[in-house]
Design a protein around this nucleic acid. Structure first.
Lengths: 237, 237
DNA sequence: CGCCAAAATTGATCTGGGTCAACTGGCTTT
DNA sequence: AAAGCCAGTTGACCCAGATCAATTTTGGCG
C-alpha cells in the first residue's frame, strides 16, 4: 500500500516516514500541515564530493539534510579554505538574508537532501509561525555553535582543537545514532584541518601523538576513544 | 526638561523617539504595537566596563542596545578570552535556546540598553510573527557574520586580520553615523586582540607598521585611514 | 598642574605550528 | 600481481606571532 502510493506521490516518499521527521525543522508541523508540506520538497541525491550549492550562488532552494554528511565552507580568493561546519541529518541549510548563500556545501561520501524551492517554501512558512519559530531556534543553536567555534579557532592550541573536535563530533553522532567510543570520521584529514584552522600535517601529527599516548586508536574510517576522560581533560584545558 | 518627561513616562522615553527605532528589532512594529511594546522595556544605563550579563547567567532579559558599544565574549577556564563580537546601537542581545546566555557582555565606555523581561517579551512576540521574522533576520545576519569571522580567525594572517577588522568596523560605523575615514575605536587594544585571536603586542605592532607605511594614522581614540585602498588590498589578499 | 596607574608601544628572544619534502600503505586499474 | 595514485604519515627546518621584559604615553584626579 505504501508502494502504490509512492508511484502516485511525485516525491517518492512521505514526510511521515522521513528519517529526520522528529528533529528536523519540520518536526514543528502537525499531520495535516505535513501532508501539504510534502508536496513542497523533493528528494535529491548527491554523489561523493558533489557540490550542493556554492557561496556565490543566488539562493533558489533550501535544503534539509536527510542522510549523509556535508562540509560547509568558505574560500578566500587565494584558495585558503575554512570549513565553518559539518552538516548531519536533520540540519536545515540555505537561510540567508542577502539572497545568496554565504557558504558552499559539498556532500562528503554521498548525501540525500530534501530540497525546497525558495518561493513556495517562503509562502508556506508565511502562515506558520511555529515553523518560523522552529527555524529561528535552529538558527540560534547554530549561532551558539558558531561562537564556540570562534573560541576554538582564536584561542585554542592544536591539541585542544583536535580533542575538542573529536568530542564534539562524537556528541553529534551520539545524538543521531547513540553512544559509541568508536567515532566514525567520514571527512578527510584536510577537511578536519580546514575546520580547525590547522594544516593537514598538524592534524596527522596530533592524531599520532594521541595514539602514542594511548588516548585514542586510529582505526579504519575513524578513531576509537580509548581514554575519553583524557581527551576531555585536553579539550577543557 | 528631560527630567520632567522622565517622571511622567515610567520608562523615561517613548519608543517613537528612540534612536534605534528604524533599524532595531522593533522596526517591524506598527505605531499601535509600539505603544504596547513601550511598556515592556525599560531603559537601563551601564557604566564603563560594567557587565550587562554573564555567560553562565540564566536568561531573564533580552536587550536592545540603544547607545554605546559592548564587547561580547567567552572565557576559557584558564582565563583566555575570545571576543565573539562587538555590539552597536540597534543590536538585539540575549536570544538563546538553553535558557542561559552563551556569552558575556560588557559595556565599553558606558552604554544604554532597552531591557525586556523574558516572559512578557515572549508573550508579546507570540502573536507578532513579523517581529519574530525580524528577529530571525537579525539572527541569520549574525550567523553570516560569525562565519566570516571564523574564516578570519582560522585562515588569515595578523596583517589581514587587522586590516579586515578596521574595514569592517568602519563599515559598521558608517551605517550608523555616515562615512568617515577617521575610525573611532572605543575598545582597547586588548579587546581588539581578543577579537582577532592575536596578542595585544601583535595588534600594536601591526598598527605601528601600517602607520609607518603611511596606510593609517593612529589618532586619539581611533585611527585615520590614509590609504583605504591599501587597507582593502591587505584585507582581500 | 604634577602624580600615579593603566594602556600602549617597543625590543629581544623563543616556540608552536607551518612549510617543504620524502615516504608509506591502501585501493583501483589493467 | 604489477603499476599507479591518493590520502595519510613522518622528518627536517623555518618563521609568524607569542612571550617576556622594559619603557613610554595617556588619562584621571587631588
Amino acid at each position: 500500500m505504501k508502494a502504490s502510493v509512492v508511484t502516485i506521490e511525485p516525491n517518492g516518499h512521505f514526510c511521515s516516514d522521513c528519517a529526520v521527521r522528529d528533529f528536523a525543522a519540520c518536526s514543528s508541523l502537525d499531520p495535516a500541515e505535513l501532508r501539504e508540506f510534502e508536496h513542497l520538497g523533493r528528494r535529491v541525491q548527491f554523489g561523493s564530493g558533489e557540490t550542493v550549492f556554492s557561496e556565490e550562488d543566488i539562493t533558489t532552494s533550501f535544503y534539509n539534510l536527510l542522510d549523509g554528511v556535508m562540509r560547509l565552507y568558505k574560500l578566500l580568493p587565494d584558495g585558503r579554505r575554512q570549513i565553518v561546519g559539518f552538516a548531519l541529518p536533520g540540519d536545515f541549510l540555505g537561510m540567508n538574508i542577502s539572497g545568496r548563500h554565504n557558504f558552499s556545501a559539498d556532500a562528503i561520501g554521498g548525501a540525500t537532501v530534501c530540497q525546497f524551492a525558495k518561493a513556495p517554501f517562503g509562502r508556506f512558512i508565511e502562515s506558520r509561525p511555529h515553523l518560523l519559530r522552529r527555524i529561528n531556534e535552529l538558527a540560534i543553536r547554530e549561532l551558539s555553535q558558531a561562537r564556540d567555534h570562534m573560541v576554538l579557532l582564536g584561542r585554542r592550541s592544536a591539541d585542544e582543537k583536535v580533542a575538542t573536535f573529536l568530542l564534539g563530533w562524537r556528541e553529534r553522532l551520539f545524538s543521531l545514532k547513540g553512544a559509541s567510543d568508536t567515532v566514525q570520521l567520514p571527512m578527510s584529514r584536510q577537511d578536519i584541518a580546514d575546520y580547525l584552522g590547522l594544516t593537514i600535517e598538524t592534524v596527522s601529527r596530533t592524531f599520532t601523538k594521541l595514539e602514542r599516548h594511548g588516548v585514542i586508536e586510529i582505526v579504519q574510517g575513524g578513531i576509537s576513544l580509548l581514554d575519553p576522560a583524557k581527551v576531555e581533560a585536553l579539550a577543557a584545558a
